[in-house]
């Protein structure tokens, strides 16, 4: 009896400590990697496509009913894209002509959807690290195979997120930044 009580206590303690550090998706329990309650968040973004590199700032704001807004700006100030994603698609508020292609926008939508909810698609395999934190995921696909890794956790969320599309030779690295912002 005492042994069962001890096991239950350990189990409850484990569950409580897990809940305090990680937020999870509603349906599958896969931990979130973006703090959806934190308002506008800013990430340093480095995008590498083959041997071309682009650096800028990605701003994201999560909204109601899975409607999330993503804005990428260059360090020089120009807006690259301003996209609103939802569970069943995306709306482009602005995108530079060079990126205004259906396939590119679909890829952004699927990447951002996974970032906001790692269990967004069904065919995803997960790897977990310490304390049940999501370490990486792989979404199989032909040309659009997606690999993501999440490191340097602070307050339950990773500070560095990496998206890799090996067959497209496209890599996107996001590093959370607290600077560069103000309110107008």
């Amino acid at each position: 009896m005492m042994r069962i009580f001890t096991l239950n206590s350990i189990l409850i303690l484990f569950l409580l400590s897990s809940c305090s550090t990680l937020k999870r998706g509603e349906s599958t329990g896969v931990p979130l990697v973006i703090d959806t309650s934190a308002g506008v968040q800013i990430y340093d973004l480095t995008m590498t496509y083959k041997d071309v590199e682009f650096a800028g700032l990605l701003l994201l704001r999560s909204g109601m009913q899975e409607r999330n807004r993503f804005v990428l700006t260059s360090h020089f100030g120009m807006t690259v894209f301003d996209i609103e994603t939802s569970g069943n698609g995306y709306k482009t508020h602005y995108v530079i002509p060079a990126m205004n292609r259906k396939r590119v926008l679909y890829l952004l939508w699927s990447d951002f959807s996974i970032l906001m909810r790692p269990d967004f698609f069904k065919n995803i395999k997960y790897t977990y690290g310490d304390e049940g934190k999501l370490k990486s995921l792989v979404r199989k696909g032909s040309i659009t195979k997606t690999e993501m890794s999440f490191i340097r956790y602070v307050d339950g969320f990773p500070n560095v997120l990496e998206i890799n599309h090996p067959f497209l030779k496209l890599n996107i690295k996001l590093k959370k930044t607290e600077n560069a912002d103000g309110v107008i």
Binding site: V40, L57, L59, R69, V71, F76, G77, I184
Partner: peptide
């Protein structure tokens, strides 16, 4: 100094 004003987020990014 560079101020990027994003009306949609009510944000001003300053460099």
């Amino acid at each position: 100094s560079q101020e990027k004003i994003l009306q949609m987020f009510s944000k001003k990014m300053v460099s």
